[in-house]
Amino acid sequence: MALLTKKDAKLISDPLADNNPITIQVLGICSALAITAELKASIVMAIAVMFVLGVGNVVISLMRNIIPSKIRIIVQLIVVATLVIVVDQVLKAFAYELSKTLSVFVGLIITNCIIMGRFEAFALGNGPWRSFLDGIGNALGYGVILVIVGFFRELLGSGTLLGFKVLGDPIAKTGLYSIGYENNGFMIIPPAALIVVGVIIWVQRSRNKALIEDH
């Protein structure tokens, strides 16, 4: 027996590629630009969003029949806000340095349109298990882009990956730096993320022409 039925597996795989929240739906761009200067922050942000979206989707799905429709958006907001505070406090207690780097962006998970979008579009109409898969799938789709962007920005901007000097030491001029390579300071600043995301969108659409909209 397969672990997931074909329909369920699609919930995970779709947002990874052809229905990616960042590159196709163009949601969650704010955080994708802001925190991807380092790979580590990207990974943590992806995990945090995965937690909030996975658990949040399940909670909303379990309550979908008892939530008064008049206040459903407020209820959704309360669920996201609660989960975000949990993430924030846990980071402060166990990963203080990181919580300082992410500071406002953890709070901004609340306003990440991907989350409210999935609650409203999916969890309110589907069972908990499928909602959970949908949440994880969308968070993975978001996370993959974050990690790709973080990878290139940290590598080209600082010459490191997760803090390790993979290209050699820029001060002691070892490795690549000994032949005159320089870090590109532009990659550190947020506009560089826009360019990297743009390149990803370009590559994705040129590989799958069906994704190109008619105008």
């Binding site: 029949n65 008892i66 939530i67 008064p68 008049k70 206040i71 407020i74 209820v75």
Partner: peptide, 13 residues
Amino acid sequence: INTDKNVYTVVFA
């Protein structure tokens, strides 16, 4: 449950 009633909404909140 009639989730549209005002009383229900207030109690739920």
